[in-house]
């Protein structure tokens, strides 16, 4: 009987419990807050006036803290770069032929709606909940579906990896370019209304200055990036895990 793993786990459990207690003490010691204070109050009160966006989250993400968003989307860019670097060693040309006719036709009917949905979420990011990250993810879902249902070669013939790459880089460059406009106007990197972008009428599609543009840029970046990640991974799966080769069918 080996007792060491058991002891190890028990000790780890006690450690974690102790840490939990310590961290909870940290939370419990904070004085209770009656109202929102600090920057949060400022955002809630004045976001729509200062940025022209009705979606406060969008205003924080793409205006007050747009630099963080640049960073976050760059994380995705880095991950995409890395995953395609790690999976790029072997060239796979064969792809699975996809699922059955029913699935293919069904997804074929659905896909345009999905793309439309993604576009709407991106474009209306400053008015309603949503935005570049969410819309981009949905767009990536479309390509994932196409990959699974039709096979990766079909997907790559519709959305070639090069297009994805250029879309991704284009989105990133667009983001930086919009930021540099603010820099050129002398009001600071990624500045919105103060750099002279039109505020528009609040709640309309063309409003909130740079926020829709940044949404589009992030949508391009995220959508293309995530689908590129999935593409490079399924390319690997297609051959390494091909169930038709000596698979368990009879």
């Amino acid at each position: 009987m080996n007792i060491r793993p058991f002891l190890f786990r028990i000790t780890a459990l006690f450690l974690c419990a102790f840490l939990g207690v310590m961290l909870f003490r940290g939370i419990a010691a904070m004085p209770p807050k009656e109202s929102v204070t600090g920057p949060a109050a400022h955002y809630l009160e004045r976001a729509s006036r200062e940025t022209g966006a009705r979606n406060v989250v969008g205003a924080i993400l793409f205006d007050y803290r747009a630099f963080d968003t640049l960073g976050e989307s760059t994380v995705i860019f880095t991950a995409v770069c890395g995953i395609s670097m790690l999976f790029s060693r072997r060239k796979f040309h064969r792809s699975s032929s996809g699922l059955s006719f029913i699935a293919k036709r069904g997804i074929g009917i659905m896909a345009p709606f999905l793309i439309m949905y993604a576009t709407v979420i991106i474009l209306f990011g400053h008015i309603s909940p949503g935005g570049g990250f969410q819309g981009g993810t949905i767009f990536a879902t479309v390509t994932v579906l196409l990959c699974v249902v039709f096979g990766s070669s079909f997907e790559s013939s519709y959305f070639p990896p090069k297009t994805k790459e250029s879309l991704e880089s284009g989105g990133a460059l667009l983001f930086c370019g919009i930021g540099l406009v603010g820099l050129a106007a002398g009001t600071g990197f990624l500045s919105n209304l103060s750099a002279g972008f039109p505020a528009g009428r609040e709640g309309s599609l063309l409003s909130a200055g740079t926020i829709p543009l940044l949404n589009i840029a992030v949508g391009m970046k995220v959508g293309a990036g995530l689908s590129a990640i999935f593409y490079s991974m399924i390319k690997m799966l297609d051959t390494t895990n091909d169930y038709r080769e000596g698979g368990p069918i009879r």
Binding site: A12, L15, C16, F18, L19, M22
Partner: peptide, 16 residues
């Protein structure tokens, strides 16, 4: 790996 996590936890407890 689990040794590392263990050490990190112990370390955190000591810091705390």
């Amino acid at each position: 790996l689990n040794t590392f996590v263990f050490v990190a936890l112990v370390f955190l407890v000591l810091l705390m």
